[in-house]
Amino acid sequence: MNVFRLVGDLSHLLAIIMLLKKIWSSRSCAGISGKSQLLFALVFTTRYLDLFTSFISVYNTSMKVIYILCAYATVYLIYVKFKATYDHNHDTFRAEFLVVPVGGLAFLVNHDFTPLEILWTFSIYLESVAIMPQLFMISKTGEAESITSHYLFCLGGYRALYIINWLYRFYSEGFFDLIAIVAGCVQTILYCDFFYLYITKVIYGQKLSLPA
């Protein structure tokens, strides 16, 4: 563990908790892409299947459990509890255009052709594009609430910190995982446009509005 990965995980956890709290306390999921949250639940499910078979540390196991529980709780709030506030008309990104190619790629490019490894690879590739429905929704509605912007900033920042973690691990342990690194770079690049708008607008208290 290094400080970059720790801060990255905490930023990820903060994002997940922040979104869950926003939906719960406002009793509304307006402006939130249910599809992205479904994809994140799928990412955690396929990545943490080793939850019961391999124990790394209390931290590792507890974070995985928290991520999975929060992901499903968020999906439940969006599609069940507060589904009346779910914005069908703007959450129209074709998620199958993400899942199918990513599924195929996971079969073709992986470290080991075993079910657990292919599912882990699928979750790595899927996570890199899972935010697209949310970014698409914001570009359609033309704006995002500030809390949603903070959520996206923390979520995008977590994988950016992981990239620094991978650089650190490469130089200190000689460890690197090309699949995780390439997918992590794609994931972070998808946020660049948003990061620019967030830094130049939201910080000064303006509402974030992506070019439609």
């Binding site: 080793d50 790394i56 690197f176 995982d177 699949i179």
Partner: peptide, 10 residues
């Protein structure tokens, strides 16, 4: 292998 260590990451 080196990749196995990746699984210690979230």
């Amino acid at each position: 292998g080196a990749e196995d260590q990746a699984k210690d990451e979230l």
